[in-house]
Amino acid sequence: MIKRFIVLLFLLALGLIFTQLLVEYIPDSELNLTAHYYAEHTAQDIGASNIVTAIIVTYRGLDTLGEVTVLFLTAAIVGLLLSKGNYKGKSLQRQLPQSGELLTTGSHLLVPLILLLGAYVFINGHLTPGGGFQGGAIIASAILLILLTDPLRKFSHTLIATIEATSGLLFLFIGVLGMIYAGGFLDNRLLPVGELGTLFSAGAIPFIYSLIGLKVGAEFSSMLVNLSETEGS
């Protein structure tokens, strides 16, 4: 009882702070200096229609590399934590019920379409609202649908790891090429910037974001597969 009281007191204090923030909040009417720079210079310097993509892949490319590394670490730790159980060779304790006709047929229809949408989203990351992380998550959702249909289905860990490692290495390789042939690490002007709004524009951004999409998709898939393989043990 006293514990709940302390919790409520804490939340009340936090709520007061939030209210204070909300009352004193004045929305900006102009872009601040950084955002203004991005708005003015993205089109000439980077050539990407989507300014958020330009920030993530080029202006803040190094941070994105760090983010992908964090994701990789997460996937590796999840694999490490959950893989032990598989080697014991436990047989399935309980029989899983059949998944329904609707789910099975629906997933056969939808999985290719979802994979296609994921690829579309990360290839067009520099033109439309989307990109590697979103596309990767969409691809992983197709894997999730397959796993919902058949929770005991085995995925090849080698294949997932190969896709993940190859795209990660290529991402780094493009970054280093940018250092040699363009302005710096992960500079997208490695390739011609091209015309704003076309598919082959924005230099190396479509390639970098596709690689990020594959890597993120593989990482999310490996997390899902690892979590799913705890089923039945």
């Binding site: 950084t34 955002a35 708005a39 003015e40 993205t42």
Partner: peptide
């Protein structure tokens, strides 16, 4: 652009 878009950061 700088008067038409919201803050991308």
């Amino acid at each position: 652009a700088s008067t038409r878009i919201i803050d991308p950061v």
